[in-house]
Each structure stands twice: as structure tokens, then as C-alpha cells.
Design a binder for these strands. Structure first.
Length: 217
DNA sequence: AAGTACCA
DNA sequence: AACA
């Protein structure tokens, strides 16, 4: 039996996988802070609840969203944009907690993007069946900053494509504690998430929570 | 400038 | 599951 088999299914510390130029999958990077991250998310959601936003085409998104930080990403019939205030309640978004911000900065540095200074963190909740169609993150002002994506709870299949929507996406499983960073040549790649398979995560139950850090302004 | 992570 |  190979040594690796002895560790099958056992957390053996962070592992970095370069999946494309400028893109790194940091397996298990967020595991040490998992409880603090979940606590911080609960506090944010208490003040800015998850909601299903409307696409410009008038369809409710299957993923429920909220934000924290200087600005949050919003969509409604008038389009996509970053806004300083939560449209539901017209209050500023909750501040970005240090445990979230420091994790994102650390992951970015680990992936080769030292000096990342996120001003927005979009928090996405996937219930079973929720998905995210292939799209680009292009509502930010400065594409020199990477995107940092933290996965918590149930695993999901992430699609990582190319610069053209027609480029066939590759698939990667994103598990609890994984952090995916993409920037540089990969900053504008099309990406998405397949419909979430049902399951029961020991900390988060029947859901996946994704944190996406950006420099929007 | 137009279109958008949506749907069938 | 990907496509038009």
C-alpha cells in the first residue's frame, strides 16, 4: 500500500496546487481558522441577512448573498455594481472582520499576490441545488488585484475556464477550508459552480458558504 | 457602450 | 452535461 493511501481522507496540512498561470488552489488553507470564520459570518448575517438578489433579466439567483467591507456587490434590474450600502435597510455593509481580511491577505501572498488589500467580501450561501453559471468577475476597477475565494461547508464542483466563454472549463472540487486565488493572467477567466449536491457538513449542515474577496475600488 | 452571475 |  502506498504511503499516500494511509492518509486518504485525513487532513494532512495545506497543499498548494497551481491550476493555471496566476491561479492557485490552497487545499485546507482556512482550516485552522474555521470556527472563527463561521462565528464572524454569523455576526455579519445577523446585521445583513442573506437574500436572493435579482439578475438584470429579472430572475432570482439560486445563491443567497450578503457582503461585508467598504463595498458590497449587488445586482438588481438596473445591473451589477458595488455599493457602499446594503440596499435592504440602506445601511452600510458590516465591516470586514480581521479574521476574514487576514485570511484573504495571507492566501493571496501564498499565491504570489503580496500586498492584496481587499475592500469587499461577498458572502454566498449555496443550499442543495444552488449553482452559479459561468461568468467573469469584471465589475472591479483594478484587475491587477486577484480574487480570493474561501470554501466552507459542503464540497462543490468549481468550473475554471478561459478568457472566452467558449473555452471548455476544467473542474476542481472545492472542499471545506480550501482557498482558491486567481489573478494576473487568470484574473478574467470564466468560472462557475455546478449545482450543489446535498449532504450534511459537521459544522455547517446542509449548505456551502463561499467568501469572495475583491479589491473593487 | 452594452450587457450581466438568469432561464428554457 | 454542454450547447444554441
Amino acid at each position: 500500500m502506498a504511503t499516500a493511501d494511509l492518509f486518504e481522507g485525513v487532513f494532512d496540512g495545506p497543499r498548494r496546487e497551481e491550476i493555471a498561470p496566476g491561479a492557485a488552489l490552497l487545499h485546507g488553507f482556512a482550516r485552522p481558522q474555521e470556527r472563527d470564520l463561521i462565528g464572524a459570518i454569523e455576526a455579519i448575517v445577523g446585521r445583513a441577512p442573506f437574500r436572493h438578489m435579482m439578475t438584470p433579466g429579472g430572475h432570482a439567483m439560486s445563491v443567497a448573498m450578503t457582503s461585508c467591507g467598504r463595498v458590497g456587490w449587488v445586482t438588481d434590474r438596473s445591473g451589477y455594481r458595488y455599493a457602499t450600502h446594503d440596499p435592504q435597510g440602506d445601511r452600510p455593509w458590516p465591516e470586514m472582520p480581521s479574521v476574514l481580511r487576514d485570511l484573504a491577505i495571507g492566501a493571496a501572498a501564498e499565491a504570489g499576490f503580496a500586498g492584496f488589500d481587499p475592500d469587499a467580501c461577498l458572502i454566498n450561501r449555496y443550499a442543495p441545488g444552488a449553482r452559479m453559471a459561468l461568468h467573469q468577475d469584471r465589475d472591479e476597477q483594478d484587475f491587477s488585484a486577484p480574487i480570493v475565494s474561501v470554501s466552507l461547508g459542503l464540497p462543490a464542483i468549481f468550473q475554471f475556464g478561459g478568457m472566452a466563454r467558449s473555452d471548455k472549463p476544467r473542474r476542481f472540487e472545492l472542499r471545506h477550508g480550501d482557498v482558491l486565488v486567481w489573478g494576473g493572467e487568470s484574473r478574467l477567466v470564466y468560472h462557475g459552480v455546478l449545482a450543489l449536491k446535498d449532504g450534511d457538513h459537521e459544522l455547517l449542515g446542509r449548505q456551502r458558504i463561499n467568501l469572495t474577496f475583491r479589491k473593487a475600488l
